[in-house]
Design a protein around this nucleic acid. Structure first.
Lengths: 258, 258
DNA sequence: CGGCACTTTGACAGTCATCAATTACGGTGG
DNA sequence: CCACCGTAATTGATGACTGTCAAAGTGCCG
């Protein structure tokens, strides 16, 4: 938090940004090109286990992950934590703080992680700059909502443990692919416990599932890395995908039913 | 969507808004008082089962529930649906549309429901009006994110069916209380199936839980209405609450651990 | 009144959580 | 460099919980 602020680009290499189809139609490129003049973006480094912030703390900044990964979680009084989500390259954390000026979840580094922090004052600057910024802000917030909706679909449904893990692995793989990395060799910087918490399961169940999937020749699992040998089989396990894009015909059909 | 637009206040009766502690520090009062001059807010009426919009459709408007209730859900290819959330008086639906101009979930009326619809053009007007609007927009989006985080905590965790239902009932009761209605007699306009889908359980399990809770004297369950006879017992069942407000001491303690 | 969807209840099986013990790994200090 | 320790990961045995299948009861609307 201390130290002199330094103006940086959001992405060290523009290449990452250009290739990142994940970040919702590359809104970040727009922000990068149009907004960053004069806005202080502070690089910060966190080591494994360190917290970017805790739930309840006053919102100081908005963070974007530049390298590494983090988990965001809720913490109950007895100390047990509930993992809400994992966030990697290019993803934002801290957005919920805009609700009332306090963070609503705790975010912890899963690895050595570098982030870009934009202080609250600079964020306000953004908002006052141009009218286009408003639309972009809304976009990024909406993306965050959508991501959580997807998670609710993933783990909220009455899905089996197998379906959940399969969906989870495919989701992580897709994120990586979108960032220009391998779509089959996926990094899992989080612990089994974290995965279990996120999927609403137990550590043991996750282990057994990994073992079973390995036995089926679908994956190859190491501690921090899983290779998807048969993504299609995983997709079959994961079950029905939710329809996001719907053609007019389907809409009409459904409307006619009523 | 056709027909002449008509300028309205967000809330027919200001009283509702003033009493609604639920809507996250009453940001709507601010919006109501500062933003609505000249913005067309179109009242629309939906009957039970009718859809406000479907996932994939182009975003036409942002809706606020004035009376009744709606569910938002994802629909899979085989027609089965996954309920993401329920939204009642004063709540917004359609926010995710800002991501790419298309709705990402389907929203269906659970009852005869009246909403205020603000068209996309008028929404853009908002964004260009004043700089305060930007902060308010961010607030309402952040609230939506936070709400979903809460849901992820509620159903994502490895909680038992009992815990989930108890939490759900208390949450609905709290919403009602915040809107000035009874905190013990809660309306459940959604079907058991919807509740089950939302909590990641089956219809039968929900029924059995209602029966069991009734037998314990904790609730009194009718079709569309549940009376909480012993909220404290329910709270005990629900288990640990997540810490949202954290004093400096706790933060320091945790920081010291590392 | 009749059909239909929703709710409720029961019996049963399967999955997954729990408890317990062993193994593998990473980091630390000698 | 190696031994050691603590944490994480894995595997097994067991049973509770909850999903599945089936059927009866209930309310709603034509």
């Amino acid at each position: 938090m201390g130290g002199p602020n330094k103006v940086l680009r959001f992405f060290g290499t523009r290449r990452n940004c250009a290739e990142c189809a994940m970040n919702h139609r590359c809104m970040w490129r727009d922000i990068e090109s149009r907004m960053l003049e004069g806005v202080a973006v502070v690089p910060e480094l966190f080591r494994k286990g360190e917290a970017l912030f805790h739930a309840g703390e006053p919102m100081r900044a908005l963070y974007m992950v530049r390298s590494g990964a983090v988990k965001s979680c809720l913490v109950s009084q007895d100390g047990s934590e509930q993992v809400i989500g994992f966030h990697g390259l290019g993803e934002l954390v801290g957005l919920e703080g805009f609700a009332d000026g306090r963070y609503a979840s705790s975010v912890v580094a899963l690895d050595t992680t570098s982030v870009c922090a934009v202080g609250l004052d600079d964020l306000r600057l953004w908002g006052q700059r141009t009218r286009e910024i408003h639309a972009l802000s809304m976009q990024m917030m909406a993306c965050a909502i959508r991501e959580r909706n997807g998670l609710l679909g993933l783990i909220g449904g009455a899905k089996s443990a197998e379906q959940r893990l399969a969906s989870f692995l495919l989701q992580v793989a897709e994120k990586q692919r979108a960032c220009g990395y391998s779509a089959t060799v996926v990094a899992l910087p989080m612990s089994r416990r974290d995965i279990a918490s996120h999927l609403g399961l137990t550590v043991e169940t996750i282990c057994r599932l990994f073992t079973r999937m390995r036995a089926c020749g679908m994956i190859e699992a190491r501690r921090n890395e899983v290779t998807l040998l048969d993504p299609e089989a995983l997709a079959t396990l994961a079950g029905e995908e939710f329809v996001v894009e719907e053609d007019a015909r389907a809409a009409d059909r459904r409307a006619a039913e009523q």
